[in-house]
Design a protein around this nucleic acid. Structure first.
Lengths: 146, 146
DNA sequence: TGTATACTCTACTAATATGATAGACATTAT
DNA sequence: ATAATGTCTATCATATTAGTAGAGTATACA
């Protein structure tokens, strides 16, 4: 798995929307400014995230984007898979693969599966609520330090 | 990390050479046939592996390729990094990265580090001798099954 | 009802990576 | 000599990535 710019933008966008969940809509302009993303590129990422059911939008003046679900309902892995494709390090361990006839015996396949499991285990056990909480902990710590 | 065809070819080639370690040279032709790789592409992969110090060669009639080191001295991760690039899932957790100024606080960075560690932990703890041994175990098992 | 603000949609483009292929050349055993 | 083998450089087609351009649609509000 390799996270592309698009994936990174998508994740940061959803995290930003998670921060404002149930509080306010966020415009593309704000998102782009806060995370330093090219606005026209971000537009497309947002449309894709919308098609994926991650975000919703309100058009017109005072419009903007907001999360389609509670941050706890969105796993990091969901976003990565949707935007950047499979977590698997190689095609032969992906779900629908059928090209290799020594699959049972292949010693490498076991390694790739191990990596796949280890990676999935991380990204599928982190929700955007978890990320939010960590951000809040950091903020509090910062306050105490002053 | 995503394994490309080139990476896959390289790994299978080294595994093949490991099987013949200290026994015989292996020609490009044999390697290509056994692992079903385009011979002209494999040529280039082999030259790259040679530059990387993984394999050596003997030219002319009865020439061929052989491993430059003992299979136990070659980690899977070495080959992957050399051929397919960084194990890290995103640039900001790579060694020489310096582009991000919130590195200390970034909650995502912790996730990427976790994935990096989990993945490295697999590929850096598997040598080609390990793979060889597993192949041999499978062969024995197969014999018993007959 | 006009207009500013915001999201929507399609098309296009430049750069790079990937997966090859082609062909001339160099080396070595016999 | 010659057949078998590795070496090297160039070229190519396709896909992916990252981004840009511009016209269109919806909405709040004066």
């Amino acid at each position: 798995m390799r996270i592309t710019y698009k994936g990174d933008y998508a994740i940061n966008t959803i995290l930003d929307l998670a921060v404002h969940y149930n509080k306010s809509l966020v415009t593309i302009h704000e998102l782009a400014r806060r995370s330093d993303m090219p606005i026209k590129f971000l537009e497309q990422v947002l449309l894709e995230l919308k098609r994926g059911g991650f975000v919703k939008s309100k058009r017109g003046k005072v419009g903007g984007y907001f999360l389609a679900k509670h941050p706890a309902q969105i796993k990091l892995g969901d976003v990565i898979r949707f935007i950047d494709g499979p977590i698997e390090p190689i095609a032969c361990v992906e779900k629908r693969y059928s090209g290799c006839n020594i699959i049972e015996r292949c010693v490498l396949r076991k390694i790739w599966q191990e990596i796949n499991l280890a990676t999935s285990n991380v990204v599928d056990n982190v929700t955007f609520e978890d990320l939010l909480n960590q951000i809040n902990v950091q903020k509090e710590t910062a306050v105490y330090q002053i």
